[in-house]
């Protein structure tokens, strides 16, 4: 019964895709768009800065905290010395 259901679902999608008219063009556009987005833009132009620059969450947290505290932190370190 499960096989039958799976087959019916498969046939449903297969027949649907086969019968498309304007949908064929749209799917081509979607495919090209997703390819450009994930295989080009994400890989070459939009690396996740924190994930690619630091190895773990502690380093990432330290980096962001340093950005937030900046000069104040520098002064505090000098004072503690």
């Amino acid at each position: 019964m499960n096989d039958n259901l799976l087959r019916r679902c498969y046939n449903f999608y297969r027949d649907g895709f086969r019968a498309m008219t304007v949908g064929r063009t749209l799917w081509k556009i979607i495919a090209v768009k997703l390819l450009v987005m994930f295989a080009v833009l994400k890989v070459f132009f939009f690396p996740d800065f924190l994930n690619t620059t630091f190895d773990n969450d502690q380093q990432r947290a330290d980096h962001v905290l340093q950005q937030l505290t900046g000069a104040a932190e520098h002064n505090e370190q000098r004072r503690m010395r």
Binding site: L26, I29, I30, F49, L50, V64, L68
Partner: peptide
């Protein structure tokens, strides 16, 4: 369907930008 197909996933680019351009914000 036409509108949806052209528009789909354009919002994901915003998430790319968060990670690259707005990493402090993204982390926080």
């Amino acid at each position: 369907g036409i509108n949806f197909a052209i528009g789909v996933a354009t919002g994901i680019i915003l998430e790319f930008e968060f990670g690259t351009n707005w990493s402090n914000y993204s982390w926080m």
